[in-house]
Computed example of a mutant assay.
Amino acid sequence: MSDDTTRDILARLDRIESREELRQLPAKYALALDMRDMDALVGLFPEDVRAGGGKTGRGALKAWFTETLSQQFDGTSHHVGGQIIEFLDADTAVGIVYSKNEHETGAEWVIMQMMYHDRYERIEGRWYFRSRQPLYWYATDLNKPPIGNRKMRWPGREPYEGNYHNLFPSWAAFWSRRDQGDSLPAVADPAPLEQFIETMRKGNEVENIRVR
């Protein structure tokens, strides 16, 4: 077996093992968050994680999570859905993770549909969340379907729009399309491997990237 073949096999094996480790991260995040194990939760992020407000570090992130979860929720359950993982290089990757969540908050039971745009980084042989960017479709009391606009409807707050579709320009383009008549629409080539998310994003960014 040639050296090139050996290197190729080892690189493929590393990619398989990395992908499996990355698939565990959102499930670990959900379990640690719902069980309120703040040390386990912040341990999924690197030591220099950005915690908002100009602060960095796991200690600052732990304080933020503790305050947020203590003040807003009595209990939570995060149901992890489909996940797409794409590697930028051997030690960095991006992902999209669907999440359906339930929150006990006072007298209301709030359900939420969202997804995360994740950035992952491998540091000293271990994969971490570099960041989690939340993209929200709706949040509403279990007995109040979020029909209409301003689907983010938290108790004690005015309803507002989520950012569920903002990362992907196809949503707005779909609804602004003109009648094509009888002609078939043009079809783009399939996205290259490891570039499905980036191809769909078309360079779009959503402001206020933060851990959530």
Score class of each variant (00 low, 15 high):
P134C: 05
D141M: 10
P159K: 01
D141E: 14
A93P: 01
D39I: 10
V49H: 00
A51S: 07
N208H: 15
Y164H: 14
A63G: 02
V94Y: 04
E17F: 05
G156R: 02
A191I: 09
P190H: 06
A51E: 00
L13H: 10
R7C: 07
L193H: 13
T66Q: 11
R7N: 11
R153V: 05
V94K: 03
Q71N: 15
A40T: 02
R177K: 15
D179T: 06
E194S: 07
N204P: 01
H79F: 15
G43N: 05
Q71D: 15
S99H: 02
Y120E: 03
K55C: 13
W171C: 08
R119P: 01
P185E: 07
D4A: 15
L69K: 00
D179A: 14
I197E: 03
V187P: 00
L13N: 09
E21Q: 14
L25C: 08
E124Y: 04
G125I: 05
K202R: 13
A107Y: 10
L184Q: 13
W171Q: 08
L61C: 05
L25D: 02
R15N: 11
W127F: 15
P145S: 08
A40S: 08
L44C: 02
W109V: 12
K144T: 09
R15Y: 11
L69E: 06
R23D: 06
E104T: 10
S170P: 02
G43W: 01
F196K: 05
R19V: 05
N204T: 09
G75L: 06
G203K: 00
V211C: 10
R178S: 14
A40G: 04
A191Y: 10
Y98D: 10
I123E: 04
E86H: 09
R126E: 08
G203V: 04
H78C: 03
I96Q: 01
W127K: 02
R157E: 12
P192H: 00
Q24W: 15
P159R: 02
I123H: 04
D48A: 08
N143C: 11
M115C: 11
W154C: 10
G52R: 00
Q83W: 01
R157Y: 14
R153K: 10
E86Q: 14
D74N: 07
M38T: 13
Y120H: 05
